[in-house]
Design a binder for these strands. Sequence first.
RNA 1: GCCGGAAUGGCGGAACUGGUAUACGCGCACGACUCAAAAUCGUGUUCCUUUUUGGAUUGAGGGUUCGAUUCCCUCUUCCGGCACCA
Length: 814
Amino acid sequence: MKRYSPKDIEPKWQKKWAETNLYAAEDYSAKLKYVMLTEFPYPSGAGMHIGHMREYSLGDIVARYKRMQGYNVLFPMGFDAFGLPTENYAIKNKITPQKATEDNVTNFVAQLQSMGFSFDWSRRFNTSDPDYYRWTQWLFLRFVKAGLAYQAEIAVNWCPFCKTGLANEEVVNGRHERCDTPVEKKLLKQWMLRITDYADRLIDGLDTVDYPSRIADQQINWIGRSKGAEIDFAIENSDTRIKVFTTRPDTIFGATALVLAPEHPLVIQLTSLQQKEHVNAYIKSAAAKSDVERQDTDRDKTGVFSGSYAINPASGEKIPVYVADYVLTGYGTGAIMSVPAHDERDYAFAVKYGLNIVPVIRPKKAVKTASEPVFTAEGVMFNSGKYDGLASSDMREQIVKDLAEQGVAQEKINYRLRDWIFSRQHYWGEPIPIIHCPKHGAVQVPEDALPVELPKVAHYEPTHTGESPLAAIEDWVNTTCPKCGGPAKRETDTMPNWAGSSWYYLRYFDPHNAKAFADRKLLDYWGAVDMYLGGMEHTTLHLLYSRFWHEFFYDEGLVPTPEPYAARRGQGIILAADGTKMSKSKGNIVNPNDVIDNGYGADALRLAITFLAPYDQTTPWSPEALGGTFRFLQRLWTLVNEYVESDGGESESDDLKRVVNRTIRKVDQDLLDYGFNTAIATLMECVNQLYRIKAKDNFSSIEWQWAIESTLKLVAPFAPHICEELWEVIGNDGSIHLESWPAYDPAWTIDQDVVIAVQINGKIRGEVKVQRGADQKTVLAAAEREHSVKNYLAKKEITRVIYVPDKLLSLVIN
RNA sequence: GCCGGAAUGGCGGAACUGGUAUACGCGCACGACUCAAAAUCGUGUUCCUUUUUGGAUUGAGGGUUCGAUUCCCUCUUCCGGCACCA
């Protein structure tokens, strides 16, 4: 018998699968389609570590399982090639980003192939291919045409290290999520996408798809829909009105001040002569603060009196107008009514500046203990004129209605979500297909002139000026206006790296189409992605962005489904063995190729990654796990080879049928539930059991052939190389991966005899073996004969008997 | 502060709608094979006490129940997300 040597068999089958294009998906098959999508990787210089391989291993298991179940499976792979890391890598290595991408992709493909994943490589593309980004540009122009892409001069989050503007989603705690540099504000004219128009759809659409609640909740949280009202406050001795947003109109009688963000456009106008100096100084100091400082919630509230007064439209009271930077510009109206008695922040501010604190809501039930200074819950209104004695929750809308009749209020929904800043001041991205004409303004590049290709140049380093390096490439920038033919300049900003990934799954359906981003008939055939597996860290970035694009495309009639992904799952992160994140700087990255080259092979690695923990759980890597999965494969290898070499008689074991039928049932169920780790445990148990049975039984030609073949089929999605090899060893032609998934006979998954646990006063005191389906009387009689039980029953009276058929007998005695 | 998730042997983890807690794997111990080691195979392995018997045990405390890892209440710790969003 040959030894199990992955080094010999794995490359052999990888080559054969590639040559026969074994895993190619068919367009328009009579079979049911199944699109298994795993997030495509960013081809960095560092290569992939085993964390990446978790995602693809899981996707591959499902893809192979579905294929064996008779689905026409599309399991594609491509590369999300545009973006900063490649640009930085290229600058560092003094090569072009094009070359860097090519090198990195070659490396990535080799890594993926050495794992034996069943991707349909014929559909592969890079988002940086002009044939691909042509359609990214084309789709962007659809946003422009629909008025969902617009230019605005705004204070963007600027990363001084990466030298580019960033989207809201890319800033975490005031820092750039990729490089951890604190972001600055920079006033730039930017292209924006109106994702806020889709805020409600992005929330409501979640009801129609199968996402884990933590993913859905996170998106809902991020969008941050809150219902409230906008209320106008008149300024004393002036026609000016200040609009505030509040979710608690019911507390309006307690509003004892108006507070404006320092950036509010009316601040200057409202500032009195005496206060001018103070207010100007305050605005200046607020502007000097970084986002990190301003977002620190522990910070003392600061502010300054403007010198003006407003009139509370409900109470008619005169209240002071303050300027304070705890009020944010860019959310709501940038102004609030301050209700110190019922809001923690307003309370802290009021205490510091000596503002009136007027309670207007009290708890429904009188509380004996001293009430807290701030009462933020619902309650009963008082100090509130005609609303006194009514429930605050009931009156919330009524007050708005009443104020609306006076023309000073309206209902309003606000979102935390901001529009998506879509311009980046870098070379390595899709050029924004716009030409700026002195006469016609921003003109769209005509469809037949797409793609607007990136010029191939030697120098593309980012600038400090906020301008893209493309601006310096004169013969590219200077062009003619598509409308009038006069001299014009190209837009020099590029798209963010989230652009290409916002629609890539659609391109897999028709990757080589030169006439459209994808043929409509193919889009109709493949439909929504059936399962999308990816990282939790993309929930409020890529996943949200691509849902937005897709929902827009649906409205434009470009795609057949309102949502892109019918189901989504997020795999957990694999940490280093010490429980910290794998990172290049710590040098604790585990490279899958090292594991493979060490002799364990891809199959053992795939099993180890999957067996480690539930797929969605963050878990530390354990190198020892490889030993276990390798031994399992070795045992499988030996078992099958011994079977081939033996010439037994008839099988005399019923256990054989039982074990295999039960294994099929359990693995089936586990794969349905994504219980990959328990599926592998079941397979290990199965092989162990087969060894035990074999020791007492003959290897017969029929029962054992069925048992061995079924077992191999069950293991095949998890460890594809060894099963393919053993499939050949036992004398089969063709690939095991195109075989049909084994079915089980339910009759053979149950035992004739069952062991029944006997509890006495809640404690297990013994067990009895009876026939399946035995009645209570029989079991009780058997239990009473059982000597371990007998002692407890002596001289006692059984007061109650609970019998769970085939499982347990519970006796209560006194 | 708000939203979500988790806590089970020395370790990773298992346990269906409340029904024999610790499956599977790692590690460890002992044994077989070997001159020896590795590899492989076999046996054992929650803890305490013990010859057996017995007792305790799923982060802590309480509750419901014949019976709770599972349901309810209170609390602790950890992880992820959001956060001066009015």
